[in-house]
Every structure is written in structure tokens, then in C-alpha cells.
Amino acid sequence: MSYLAVEDLSISFGGIRAVDDVSFAVDEGEVFAIIGPNGAGKTTLFNLVSGIYFPDGGRVRFAGRDITSLPAHRIAPLGLARTFQNIELFEHATVLQNLLIGRHVHRRSTALSHLLFLPAVRREELEHRRRVEDVIDLLELAHYREQTIANLPYGVRKVVEVGRALCLEPKLLLLDEPTSGLNPEESEDMGFWIEDINRDLGVTVVMVAHDMGLVSRVAGRVLALNEGRVIAEGSPVEVQKDPAVVDAYLGAD
């Protein structure tokens, strides 16, 4: 059975069918890309999968479990993390604090044991620190560890957000436009990290992307959407050549 299975998913806003009967399946260990022109419904699809919108019809299954009607804070502990196109970080906190809060779902100790500074709390805290440091090393964020997000350049914030998602120790990572707003060099780094995350950490990745260079490099399979509907699915090369995709991007004759 597929790791992430989206079945006949639909949602309307007013009279607009933003996502219209979309189905796809992602296997464990894959890098899966979703492409499409502006307004195709890519981010809406992400919001449906990650529990910020609830669909009018259809189902979402993750690791064999129906998560269609679970809210975001219940989905996160199952091992599903995401990032946002426009970056949602805790602006007035440091990089380290942002990453530490990414471990929120793994915190077990109670308020009382925290206030008493019990040894178990210390052990737990050290474990969280160690995991966060691993992420900092992986994404080369050491230099920015103590800096406040508000003072960081856009490209670094984008990486911090991926880092925070990794601190959740996800099994499935949803990346919404991981390279939007990045310069070519930063985009290239992001591509390498996505490969590392997938290959070394064994995280299944589903990403929304505009950057076909990135998609061709890291994605195994691609789903193309237009006006809320699936218009093509296959390898990056196949999808790029698909007449429906060409029409969607360039306009039909």
C-alpha cells in the first residue's frame, strides 16, 4: 500500500473548485513533486493533506491511517512535517529556539517535573539539544544559531524552516516551494539538502515546485495540476513533454 494516498480529494471556495477530484499515491522513500501554473491548487492540496483545510470530498491516508479529518496539531505527531511558501517562523526567537520548538511533539515531561528540574527532564532536554545540533550540522546553520529570525536574510530563513520541520523527525516532509525567492546558488544547496534528507535520513519528500531544474534533479515522479485537476503524472521528462502540461503553462493554441 502507498505511504501517502490521496483519493478523489475535492474542495470548493465559493463557486471555485480549487482542488477537483485529485488522486495520487506516494511510495515510501520517494521524492514526489507537484507542479502547475499559479492558481493550479498546489498549496491548497498541501493544506488539505496537512490538516489546515478539510475537504468537501475524498480521503487522505498516511502510513495506513486515515488523516482526512485530523487537525494539523494531531497530524504532526504522526511524523508529517511541512514548510510554507512564504515562511512561517517564530520571528522574534533565535534559530536555536525555532528548532527546539520543532521538537514540541516529542516532549513528554509534565509541567510539574519541569518546574522541579527533575533529572528525567534534564536527560530529555539533552536529547532534544543533541537532535537539534544534528540538524544544525546537516543544514550548516551553526553560524546563525543564536541569531533572531527577523535579522536573517530570506535564504537562511528558508533553510531554518526546513530545519524546524526536520526537528520533528518526520517520516514525510511536505515542502511548499522550497526554492522560491532563493538565488541560483541557494537553490542548488537546497536541492542537495533535499537529496540528503531523502537519502540519508530516509524521509519521504513531497514538494510543490516551480523550479523545473530542481524537479528534474531531485524528483522521481511528478504530478502536474491545472485549475485544480490532475493533467499529467510520470517522470519529470515525461511530464515536461506532456502536451496538456505545455498547454497549461504556455496556453493552448
Binding site: P77, L89, V105, A111, R164, L168
Partner: peptide, 20 residues
């Protein structure tokens, strides 16, 4: 944990929601 969660929520509700 709850107190820190509250601080996080006050800074960014969406991000807080997605870290659980």
C-alpha cells in the same frame, strides 16, 4: 511545555499549529 507553546503561538499561530 505548555508555557513555551503559548509563547510560540503568540509569535506565529500557523507555525505553532504545524509543530503540533
Amino acid at each position: 511545555r505548555l508555557g513555551i507553546g503559548m509563547q510560540a503561538t503568540s509569535q506565529n499561530q500557523l507555525a505553532a499549529y504545524y509543530v503540533g
